[in-house]
Computed example of a mutant assay.
Amino acid sequence: MEIAIVDDMEDDRNLIRHLAHTYFEEKKDLYDVSPNFIEFESGEAFLKKYTPGQYQLVFLDIYMDKVTGIDVAKQISTIDKNCSIIFFTTSNDHLLDGYDVHAVGYIIKPIENHIANFYSAMNYVVSKLELDNAGIIVSTNFDSLYLYYKNILYIDCNNRTVYVHLTDKVLKILGKYSDYKDNFLSDSRFIECFRSIIVNMDYIDTPTASDFILKSGEKLPISRRKRASVMKKYMMYFMHKQ
């Protein structure tokens, strides 16, 4: 896991690195994460070398000369939606700015007085990382592939052939629908909305009386028999994400 620490105070950078390292050591039985820390003493130095997808987590001090942590976060959030941001600051004044850039943590200095908040933010980051990396191995006529759940819109079965609908293509995979059903439904993002159709709820745009309309414009039927339970699970998932 690539982590950037951007703070103009060396002591604070050292403390953040120490706390993060301690967190991962304590959680090593739960999470298989190997952190790699890169430090920057200014927002300008970070942005000069930053490329989208380079870091999974960025620790940002808000109050820095010239380019502030808020300025840095705004640039990150416009080009890298998958990068998590945790702010460190001496004031609550920029709390709303943190929401605007979807920061997952806002830790008040001195940091050692807010360890519980730090751990809570880190738990969210690592859980999100595990979701991003979760997936399934499928076989096709040509090869075995590892598919990330986050890239799957839905799965369906037609004439005993199973199809995985990805964000950029459709794959015909070997095996029966029942071979894959439990694996998909074990992930909280997926729900079986109709017989032999499992949809990733992250890609649902609008539910109607009889269908889920996806962000792609596709329409998937909702079983009349299971509609109440399907809609309850969808609404619970949607509310939990907010």
Rank of each mutant, 00 (worst) to 15 (best):
Y203I: 01
G53Q: 11
R17E: 11
D32T: 14
M231R: 08
V33H: 04
D132R: 12
D156H: 09
S223N: 05
V126E: 02
A103Y: 01
K172F: 07
N183D: 10
P35T: 06
N82M: 12
S127Y: 13
L185A: 09
E41C: 12
D187I: 08
I85T: 01
F37Y: 08
S223A: 07
R225L: 13
L214I: 02
P35D: 03
M235A: 14
T78P: 04
R195Y: 13
M9K: 12
S216D: 01
Y124I: 08
F190G: 00
P35K: 05
V126S: 01
Y234Q: 06
D71K: 09
Q75V: 13
D61V: 03
S186R: 09
V67Q: 08
C83T: 09
A73T: 02
Y149L: 11
S186V: 04
S186A: 10
Y23R: 00
Y119C: 02
A20S: 04
L129T: 05
R17T: 05
N14F: 12
I173E: 03
P221M: 08
L145R: 11
L131N: 09
D7E: 07
A228L: 14
D65P: 07
D12W: 07
Y55D: 07
D11F: 07
Q54I: 15
K128Q: 11
D143H: 14
N117T: 05
S229A: 11
A4Q: 02
S210K: 15
V230H: 04
E26Y: 08
F87L: 01
M231C: 05
K74N: 14
R189V: 04
K128N: 12
I136L: 09
Y203F: 08
Y31K: 05
K49S: 15
T167N: 13
S186T: 10
E41P: 04
D80N: 10
M235L: 14
Y50C: 01
K128R: 13
R224C: 05
K233V: 07
N117F: 02
E25V: 11
I86M: 04
Y149E: 06
S210H: 15
I79K: 10
S210E: 15
